[in-house]
Amino acid sequence: MRSLQVLRWLPFVVMFGVALLDLLGGRNLVFLPLLTLGPAFASVSGGVRRTALVGAVALAILVPMAIYNGLLFTWENNLTVVSILGVTGASMLASRLRLQRERELASVRQVAEAAQRVLLRPVPRRAGDLRVALSYTSAAAEAQIGGDLYEVVTTPHGVRLLIGDVQGKGLAAVETAAWVLGAFREAAYDEADLADIGDRLEASLARHLGREQFVTAIVAELGDDEMTLVNFGHPAPLLIQPDGELRTVEPPEQGLPLGLAAFDPSAAKAHRTPFGRGDRILFFTDGVIEARSPEGDFYPLTERAGFLTRDDPQAALDALRADLVEHTGGPLLDDAAMLLLHRPH
């Protein structure tokens, strides 16, 4: 907000600065052609009318300054008038095009965000004997809505979840996320084996994705004292044990992302990890670990995992999200989804 106010007043500051410089320079040095900077700067943040107003102010400053310098009606001054009129007209056109583009981007962003809200249903706070917490932070750069996706469902086969990240941005990514979520919600109930769920997801994407497009994802199933996972090229989750020990749940063999099965027909393999009383596990998308500070440092997730040991999982995840935003020092450049599961004692 403060930077916007600075931009709004910058044209006037520049023009009066030019007038002051011309007065201090005497009649031998004429800086009046620099008044064209006023309407040029106005087009950056102002509307068409404001840009025209700045151009009129530039002409209003020019006339008395030209009289002071003895240049009124000279060809040099007439050329300056034409320059101000020309730059003002061009700046008004640029301002109109900028505002039109901003409205289009805002419309696209609203549509994409509405689509995401429909697709990404609120996860249940409890699933079986598990407590579930969710944090989703949307990227704030123009219309760069991402394709992060998640789902937690209780099925006859147990509690199953999906977290994923679609390659790309915008409405195309949201559409792909819709296909993945739809296929998972059906397959999670129908298929007894996690690998078969992966096959269903792959088959669905093969019908809708273009060549070399992909989706990284993890499909997981929670058992009584263990968890089964199939990792399709997604960042490995972080397991937090009751004593505070951290462990990254890496798959024995890294599987390819969904949509790239044609490059390697061998399916991603399921693997198991203990998940008992008091354990917590954090699933996340790469927008978390790839978030950079103003100095360019990646977010140190494992070093900040202490936030996740709070009693309330949602409060713990909210604290971690606040720390993530503080680390970046501003809006995230990519969507960041985090899903925390806790099995109480």
Rank of each mutant, 00 (worst) to 15 (best):
S3A: 15
S3E: 14
S3V: 15
S3D: 14
R8Y: 09
L10P: 06
F12I: 13
V14F: 05
M15E: 03
G17I: 04
V18D: 05
L20N: 10
D22M: 04
L24G: 10
R27T: 11
L29H: 15
F31Q: 11
L32S: 12
P33R: 08
L35K: 03
A42P: 02
V44C: 12
S45D: 12
R49T: 05
R50W: 04
V54P: 02
V54C: 03
I67H: 14
L72V: 15
T80E: 01
S83K: 10
V87D: 07
T88P: 05
A90V: 12
L93G: 07
A94V: 07
S95T: 10
R96D: 08
L97P: 13
Q100M: 14
E104S: 15
E104F: 07
L105T: 15
S107V: 12
S107A: 15
R109V: 07
Q110H: 14
Q110L: 14
V111M: 12
E113D: 11
E113S: 13
L119N: 11
L120C: 06
R126Y: 09
A127K: 01
G128E: 00
S135Y: 00
S138D: 10
G147R: 02
K169M: 01
E175G: 14
A187F: 00
A192P: 05
D193K: 09
G198Q: 01
R200C: 03
L201G: 01
L201T: 00
E202H: 04
L209T: 07
E212L: 13
Q213C: 14
A220R: 08
G223R: 08
D225L: 14
E226D: 15
L229K: 07
N231M: 00
F232E: 05
H234N: 09
P235W: 02
P237W: 02
P252W: 00
L256R: 07
P265T: 09
A268Y: 01
K269N: 09
F275S: 02
L282E: 03
F283N: 04
D286S: 13
D286R: 12
P294G: 05
P294F: 01
P300N: 02
L301S: 05
T302M: 08
T302G: 13
F307P: 06
F307Y: 10
P313Q: 06
P313T: 10
D323E: 05
L339G: 03
L339A: 09
